[in-house]
C-alpha cells in the first residue's frame, strides 16, 4: 500500500520501515527560481513562498513542505539587518549586540505582532489549508544557544560564553522565551514539527564538556516547552560524540554531517533518533545525474534499514547553485532505490 508522506515520515520516526525511504529536499531559495523572482522579492510575500513550496513538492515528489524563509529572519525580528544576494541565502548584517552590555536592554519580540514572523505564520497556515495531514510541514527555529552567532557575531559570542556566564545566562533567558513562543506559534499555525537548528551544540563548534555546562541545559529546557515534535539539526556540524545527549533531550531526529561516517551514525542513532541527512550539499552542485543516483543509492544502503532515516542534505538548506536536473535525479533515485519492499 502506498503511504502518504505523513504516514511515511511518522513510520520512520517510529523506527519502522515505511513503503519507501522518505526524503526531504530542504529547498528555500529555489522557490524564487520557480516563480522567476529575485530571492528578496520571493521572500517579501507569503503567497510567493506558498506557491514556490507547492510547485517544488509537485515537481520533486518529496515528503515535506519547508516554509523556512532565511536564517537571519529571527535577528530581523529583534530589529537586525538582513542582507539579500542574488545567488545565495540572506546574511545578517551588523550585529544588534555591539557591546556586551547591550544584552541588558534586549527585549523579546512579540512573535504574533512582528511582521517578518507573521509572514511565516501566514505561509504555514496557507500550506496547511492545501495539504491538510497528507504532508508534513516543517517549521524552523534557531536554538537560543545558536542565535547569538547572528546577534553579536561568533567571535564575540565565544568570548561571552567562556568569559561572562552572567551575561550569557541573561541572553539565554531572552532567547529562550523568544524561541519557545516562535516555535509554538508555528505549530499553532499548522506546522507538523519544528526543525531546531543548533550548530553551536556540535563538537565541531564547542567542546562537549562546555556544551553540557551551557547549551545543553538551555536546549533541554527549551525543547521541553515546545509543544510538538522536534528535530535537532547541527547544520553540517559533527554529531557522533553527542548523540546520547541529544536523545536524552527528547528530540526525535538529528540532522547530521556528511563528514561523519554514516554507518557509525546509524548505529549510534538506532532506535533512539531518526537520522536526517546526509548528502553533501556543497558538492551537489557538480553532481551529474548518475553521480546523484549513486550517492543516493549508497546512502540508502548504509542508513535506511529498520527505518529511523529521512534522506536529506547535510546542512538543512540546499545551495542556490544546485540545479533542477540534480534535484530531479535525487528524487528519481529515491523513488527507484528507496522502496523497502525491494530489499
Amino acid at each position: 500500500m502506498t503511504m502518504s508522506s505523513m504516514q511515511r515520515v511518522l513510520t520512520t520516526l517510529g523506527h519502522k520501515e515505511p513503503d519507501r525511504v522518505p526524503f526531504f529536499l530542504l529547498l528555500s531559495m529555489h522557490g524564487a527560481r520557480e516563480l522567476g523572482l529575485s530571492i528578496k522579492d520571493y521572500f517579501s510575500k507569503s503567497e510567493h513562498v506558498v506557491e514556490g513550496q507547492l510547485r517544488m513538492l509537485n515537481k520533486y515528489r518529496h515528503d515535506c513542505l519547508y516554509p523556512f524563509f532565511y536564517t537571519p529572519l529571527e535577528v530581523e525580528a529583534f530589529g537586525g539587518e538582513v542582507l539579500f544576494y542574488e545567488d545565495g541565502p540572506p546574511n545578517s548584517g551588523t550585529p544588534i549586540i555591539k557591546k556586551k552590555s547591550d544584552i541588558l536592554s534586549l527585549t523579546v519580540p512579540a512573535v504574533t505582532e512582528t511582521a517578518c514572523l507573521v509572514k511565516v505564520f501566514e505561509t504555514i497556515h496557507a500550506l496547511k489549508e492545501k495539504v491538510g495531514d497528507e504532508t508534513p510541514i516543517i517549521g524552523v527555529v534557531v536554538s537560543p544557544f545558536s542565535l547569538p552567532v547572528m546577534q553579536m557575531g561568533l567571535s564575540a559570542y565565544i568570548e561571552l560564553l567562556y568569559e561572562d556566564p552572567g551575561l550569557f545566562n541573561k541572553l539565554m533567558a531572552v532567547n529562550q522565551q523568544f524561541c519557545v513562543a516562535w516555535a509554538n506559534a508555528q505549530l499553532q499555525a499548522g506546522a507538523t514539527a519544528i526543525c531546531y537548528f543548533n550548530p553551536m551544540a556540535s563538537p565541531t563548534m564547542i567542546a562537549r564538556e562546555m556544551y553540557l555546562k551551557t547549551g545543553f541545559q538551555v536546549d533541554t529546557q527549551t525543547l521541553s516547552q515546545i509543544q510538538g515534535p522536534t528535530a535537532f539539526h547541527l547544520a553540517s556540524g559533527n554529531a557522533l560524540p553527542i548523540l546520547g545527549d541529544l536523545a536524552a533531550m527528547g528530540t526525535a531526529a538529528v540532522g547530521v554531517s556528511c563528514l561523519e561516517d554514516i554507518s557509525a551514525l546509524k548505529e549510534g542513532c538506532r532506535n533512539k533518533l531518526t537520522i536526517i541527512g546526509n548528502l553533501n550539499g556543497v558538492e551537489m552542485r557538480r553532481w551529474t545525474p548518475s553521480q546523484a543516483e549513486k550517492n543516493v543509492r549508497d546512502l540508502i544502503a548504509a542508513a535506511a534499514d529498520g527505518g529511523g532515516f529521512i534522506l536529506s542534505d547535510n546542512h538543512g538548506e540546499i545551495p542556490w547553485q544546485v540545479g533542477e536536473e540534480t534535484l530531479q535525479a535525487i528524487s528519481n533515485a529515491v523513488h527507484k532505490w528507496g522502496n523497502y519492499s525491494q530489499e
Binding site: M205, I206, A207, P241, E260
Partner: peptide, 9 residues
C-alpha cells in the same frame, strides 16, 4: 574532530 572551533579560536 577532537578539538572544537571555539578552542581553536
Amino acid at each position: 574532530g577532537t578539538v572544537a572551533l571555539a578552542q581553536v579560536y
